[in-house]
Design a binder for these strands. Structure first.
Length: 879
DNA sequence: CGATCCCGCCACATT
DNA sequence: AATGTGGCGGGATCG
C-alpha cells in the first residue's frame, strides 16, 4: 500500500544509478508523483531490486521537490555509515555497496541495510541534533517514510523510541516535532532518577551480578506486578495521553520499554545490560516461565529499541560472558552523569551533606545551592530537578498528543509557569490516571512523571506510608477541581467559612506567584495569614521564569521552564496553549501550593499518603503543602492543574482574585500545618517554601477576598534563601497530632522537600513551632501533619530578610513572618529520603496504593481542588 | 544453530 | 469506514 501511494511509491528506481537525480530531473513533478507509478511498472521488473530498495529510490525520486529540499537540509548528511556512502546525490540508498547483488546485478539490499538501526541513522541525519530553538521542525511520518523508503511502521518504531527520550514529541496525527538532543540529558537524568527509584535498589545491590539482579528483579517485579500492571508508569514520558484517553491503548509499550531499558542502563553500575536481563525485568507479567514466547517477543522489541539507541550513540552492543555462556548485551556509552546539564552541574557538591540515610548517593540531599543558581550539585542524585523534568515531560507529552489536549486535564502549558506546570502536570497526570487510567495504577508512580513526579508520586512508599493515598488526593484535587466536586466535608467548610466558597477548608493552600513568594505565617491564632507575594509582578517573574529557565539552573525549575520553552518534553507548553495555557499562565505566576492535610485526625488517614504525594509534588512543583489536620481531608495538593481546571470551570474568579488566597484552613482546628512552597520563578530552585509549623490551632483563615490573610504558622523562605539553604522537612513532627502512625504525611513532606529538589540537600527549613522529629525515618509513622519544618536559623533569618514584600500578584501585601521558632532540628533531608526511596522503588506497589488512594481521594481531592483552584485562581487573577 | 530483527498482519484507536 | 498506531510474532538472515 504504501508503496503505491504517492510519491513514495512511485517508481522505483530500478537503477541504482542515481535515482535521485533522475527523480529530480524528471521528477520534477514532485507533486505529481503519482506519475511515477508508471515507472514502477516498467522498471520493476527489470530490476527487481528489493522492493524496499526500489521504494526507497522511488521515494526519493518521488517527491523530489520536497525531498530535495529536505534532504538538502540534512537529510543527507552522510551520517550513515561509512559503508554507504551515499552521496546525496545518489540515493542514500546506495545500497549498492552493501546490497547483495542479485541475479541481475541488482542489489538487494542486505538485511543490514534495511536494519532499523541504519534507518534510524538516516532518520536522525535529517535533523539537527541541536536545533535552534527557533526552528521548529516538524516531522511528517509519511514524508519521512517515503523519503527513507520504508514503511511507516518502521518509522513508528523509531519515533516511539525517540519520543521516549524526548527527542521528538508527537504533535498531531502523523506529525511529530523534532526537539533534538537538547533535553536528552535531562531526560536521561530523569530516567536515571526514576530508574533508581524503581530499580535502584536492585541494581545497586545486585549489579554485580546480573543474575542476581535478575532474580531480584523478578521478585521485585512480581510484587509490582501484582500490584498492578504498571505500565505506564514509567513513562512519564508518556505523554500520552495515556491518561487521557483511554487507557487502553496499549500503552505504548515500546515507549515505556524504551525508557525502562534506558533506566536500566543508567542505574546499572556496569552500564551493561544483557538483553535477557532486560527482558526479564521488563516483562510485566511475572510469568517468565509462563511465557517463553512473551520473553521472546520482549527480546525482539528490545532489539528494536537497542537499534535505535545504538544509532543515537547511547549504547553499543557487547557481549557478556557469564558462566552460562556468552550473552548478548549492550553497554551504555552515553552520558552517565548528568550533571546537570543544564543545570549544571557540577558541582560539587559534596558539600552537601549527604544524608546519612541516603542511599547511594543518589538521592542525596545535598544540594547545595550555592548560589542561587546553580550549583546544584547533585550527584547523581537527582534531586530536585528531576521532578521538574518529569513533570515536564508529562506535560509535554500531554500536549503532544492532541488527544491529550482535549482532555481537560491538561493544563498544559503554561508556558512559563513551568513550575506550576510541573506541579500541575504531575497532578494532572495523577489525576488523570485516577480518572482515566485506572489501569495504570502502578503507574502512578513514577512513571507519570518520571523524574520528578515520580517521586512525587511515589512518594509514598507504600510501606512507608501506609496511606499513600492521601497524597494522591492532593494531586488529584487539582483535577478534581476541575471537576470541582467539593468534598463533602471540606467544601462546605471552605465555602462557608470564608465566604468564599472555594477555599478549602482544611487545606490551606497558597498560591504564590511564581516569582518569589513569601509566605508568612503569623500566629496561629489569628489566623491570618498574609501572604505576600514578593513579586509584584507576577509577570515579571514569569518572564523571568521563562527566561530563567534557561539561565538559571536552578535545577528543576529551570529545567522545567526550559522545557516549556524547549519543550521537547514539555510540549505542553507550546502546545496547548490554548485556554488551558492561558489559565495556566495566569496561574503560572502563582504557584500552586500544595497543602497537605494532616491526616491525623482526619478521617482520612490516608491522607498521609497523600502527603507523600504532595510532597512529591512539592518536589516537583515546589509547592508547599500544608497539611492540615482539620478537615481530615487528606492533603491536597494544589496543582496548577487544578487551577487550570478551575479556571476553566470556574474561572479565576472564585478564587481569589489577584491575590493569593490562601485557602484557609480555616476551620478546622485541627488544621495542622500548612506548608507552602513558593516557587520562584525559576524553578524549583527558586522555590520558596513555607512551612507551617504545625500548629495550628489556629488554622489559617483565609480571607475570601483577594486579600485574605491567613494565620498560619508558616514560614516563608525566599526562594533565594531557599536556594541557599536546603530545606528540610522534618517529618516527624512533634505535633500533637502527629502521632499518627502513618506518619506518612510527615514523611512525605519531608520527603518532598528533599525531593523537591529543592535542594535536597539543602536546606532548610523552618519549623515552626513544631517540633520536629529529627528525621523522618522511614518510618512512616509520623505525622505529617505537623511536619514541622525546621528552619534553620539561618533560614529564618534569611527569610526575614528575604521577606519579600513585593506584592505579587496581589496587591496584597504580604507579610512575612518570621518564624518564630526556628525550629529545632532541621531534618535532614536525607532522613527523609530514605523513606521515599523505598517508596519509589516500590513504586509499583506504591502505585497500587496510590491508585487506591487516588480513588479514595478522588473525592477529597476535588474538594481540595476547589480550594486549590481558588488559590490558583487567585493567582491567576492577578493576572 | 542461535542471535538478530525485518516484515507486515492485524487489532485497536482516531478521524 | 478510513486511517493512524503500534503490538506482535513468523520466519528470513546473519554470524
Amino acid at each position: 500500500e504504501n508503496i503505491f501511494d504517492r510519491s513514495r511509491m512511485a517508481p522505483k528506481t530500478p537503477i541504482k544509478t542515481d535515482p535521485v537525480d533522475l527523480s529530480k530531473q524528471k521528477g520534477c513533478t514532485p507533486e505529481r508523483n503519482p506519475i511515477t507509478p508508471v515507472k514502477l511498472a516498467d522498471r520493476p521488473q527489470p530490476d527487481p531490486w528489493t522492493p524496499t530498495a526500489n521504494l526507497k529510490m522511488l521515494v526519493s525520486a518521488a517527491s523530489p521537490d520536497m525531498r530535495d529540499r529536505e534532504k538538502k537540509k540534512e537529510l543527507f548528511r552522510p551520517i550513515e555509515n561509512s559503508d554507504q556512502s551515499d552521496t546525496p546525490d545518489s540515493s542514500q540508498y546506495d545500497m549498492v555497496d552493501d546490497s547483495t547483488v542479485d541475479e541481475f546485478g541488482k542489489r538487494r539490499p542486505s538485511r543490514k541495510q534495511k536494519s532499523l538501526g541504519l534507518l534510524c541513522q538516516k532518520f536522525l541525519a535529517r535533523y539537527p541534533s541541536y536545533p535552534l530553538s527557533t526552528e521548529k521542525t516538524t516531522i511528517s511520518l509519511d514524508e519521512v517514510a517515503s523519503i527513507l523508503g520504508v514503511e511507516r511502521r518502521r518509522i513508528y518504531d523509531i519515533v516511539n523510541v525517540l519520543e521516549s527520550l524526548h527527542l521528538v514529541s508527537r504533535v498531531a496525527k502523523n506529525q511529530y516535532s523534532w526537539h533534538g538532543r537538547h533535553n536528552l540529558r535531562q531526560t536521561l537524568k530523569t530516567l536515571q532518577e526514576a530508574g533508581e527509584l524503581q530499580y535502584g535498589e536492585l541494581m545497586t545491590s545486585c549489579q554485580h551480578k546480573e543474575q542476581d539482579m535478575e532474580y531480584q528483579f523478578g521478585e521485585w517485579r512480581k510484587e509490582i506486578l501484582s500490584d498492578s500492571q504498571e505500565r505506564p508508569l514509567l513513562d512519564f514520558s508518556e505523554p500520552d495521553c495515556t491518561s487521557a484517553s483511554a487507557n487502553s491503548r496499549k500503552d505504548k509499550s515500546l515507549r515505556i520499554m524504551s525508557q525502562k531499558f534506558v533506566m536500566l542502563f543508567l542505574v546499572s553500575k556496569t552500564k551493561i545490560v544483557t538483553l535477557d536481563t532486560a527482558a526479564k525485568i521488563l516483562i510485566e507479567e511475572t510469568q517468565d516461565a509462563v511465557d517463553y514466547s512473551k520473553f521472546k517477543t520482549k527480546v525482539r522489541r528490545l532489539y528494536d529499541i537497542a537499534n535505535v539507541l545504538t544509532s543515537l550513540g547511547l549504547i553499543k552492543k557487547v557481549h557478556v560472558t557469564e558462566e552460562r555462556g556468552r550473552k548478548p548485551a549492550f553497554k551504555w556509552i552515553g552520558p552517565v552523569e548528568f550533571p546537570g546539564k543544564t543545570n549544571e552541574l557540577k558541582g560539587v557538591s559534596p558539600a552537601c551533606d549527604p544524608l546519612p540515610g541516603t542511599q547511594r548517593g543518589a538521592r542525596a540531599p545535598c544540594e547545595i545551592r550555592t548560589t542561587g543558581k546553580q550549583r546544584f550539585t547533585r550527584h547523581k542524585s537527582f534531586n530536585g530537578s528531576q521532578p521538574c523534568e518529569g513533570t515536564r515531560r508529562k506535560v509535554s507529552s500531554e500536549p503532544s498528543s492532541p488527544h491529550h489536549e482535549r482532555q481537560a486535564h491538561a493544563v498544559n502549558s503554561n508556558e512559563h509557569c513551568s513550575k506550576m506546570i510541573n506541579l500541575a502536570a504531575v497532578c494532572r497526570q495523577q489525576i488523570k490516571e485516577d480518572t482515566r487510567l485506572p489501569s495504570i495504577p502502578s503507574a502512578v508512580s513514577v512513571l507519570p512523571v518520571p523524574g520528578n513526579s515520580d517521586f512525587c508520586v511515589n512518594p509514598l512508599p507504600r510501606a512507608v506510608f501506609p496511606v499513600v493515598q492521601a497524597d494522591t488526593p492532593n494531586l488529584l484535587l487539582p483535577n478534581d477541581i476541575s471537576s470541582q466536586a467539593p468534598h463533602p466535608s471540606m467544601p462546605a467548610a471552605s465555602k462557608a467559612d470564608h465566604g468564599k466558597p472555594t477555599l478549602l477548608p482544611n487545606q490551606p493552600f497558597l498560591c504564590f506567584p511564581s516569582s518569589s513568594v513569601f509566605m508568612l505565617c503569623s500566629g496561629l491564632q489569628e489566623n491570618h495569614l498574609e501572604i505576600l507575594p514578593t513579586t509584584g509582578d507576577v509577570e515579571n517573574k514569569r518572564a523571568e521564569a521563562q527566561a530563567a529557565s534557561a539561565p538559571s539552573p536552578p535545577a528543576v525549575c529551570q529545567k522545567c521552564s526550559s522545557h516549556k520553552c524547549a519543550s521537547p518534553l514539555a510540549s505542553v507548553d507550546d502546545e496547548e496553549p490554548a485556554a488551558k495555557k492561558q489559565v495556566i499562565e495566569q496561574k503560572d505566576v502563582p504557584l500552586p501550593l500544595v497543602a497537605s492535610e494532616k491526616p491525623f485526625e482526619s478521617p482520612k488517614t490516608e491522607s498521609t499518603p497523600g502527603c507523600g504525594c504532595t510532597a512529591a509534588v512539592h518536589l516537583e512543583a515546589c509547592c508547599a503543602a500544608a497539611p492540615e489536620a482539620a478537615g481530615g481531608e487528606s492533603s491536597k495538593l494544589v496543582g496548577a492543574q487544578e487551577q487550570d481546571k478551575r479556571t476553566q470551570n470556574k474561572g479565576p474568579a472564585e478564587p481569589c482574585p489577584g491575590e493569593e488566597h490562601v485557602p484557609q484552613a480555616k476551620a478546622h482546628p485541627s488544621f495542622l500545618q500548612q506548608y507552602l512552597c513558593v516557587q520562584p520563578a525559576a524553578g524549583f530552585s527558586g522555590f520558596n517554601f513555607l512551612f507551617p509549623a504545625n500548629q495550628a490551632p489556629g488554622a489559617v483563615g483565609l480571607a475570601a477576598s483577594p486579600l485574605p490573610s491567613l494565620s498560619v504558622p508558616c514560614f516563608m523562605v525566599p526562594s533565594t534563601a531557599l536556594s541557599s539553604f536546603p530545606v528540610i522537612c522534618s517529618p516527624t513532627v512533634a505535633s500533637p497530632l502527629s502521632q499518627v502512625p502513618d506518619g506518612s504525611c510527615s514523611a512525605a513532606t519531608s520527603v518532598n522537600f528533599s525531593v523537591s529538589g529543592l535542594a535536597p540537600t539543602a536546606p532548610v527549613f523552618v519549623g515552626t513551632t513544631a517540633v520536629v522529629a529529627p528525621h523522618v525515618p522511614h518510618t512512616p509513622s509520623e505525622q505529617p501533619a505537623h511536619t514541622t519544618p525546621h528552619l534553620s536559623p539561618v533560614l529564618a533569618r534569611s527569610c526575614d530578610a528575604a521577606k519579600v514584600e513585593s506584592p505579587v500578584c496581589m496587591r496584597n501585601p504580604v507579610t512575612l513572618l518570621k518564624l518564630q521558632q526556628p525550629s529545632s532540628a532541621p531534618l535532614t533531608p536525607k532522613s527523609i529520603r530514605p523513606a521515599r526511596h523505598e517508596a519509589f522503588f516500590k513504586t509499583p506497589r506504591s502505585l497500587g496504593d496510590l491508585v487506591t488512594w487516588k480513588k479514595t481521594e478522588g473525592n477529597q481531592t476535588r474538594n481540595a481542588s476547589s480550594v486549590q483552584r481558588r488559590l490558583e485562581i487567585s493567582n491567576s487573577s492577578p493576572d
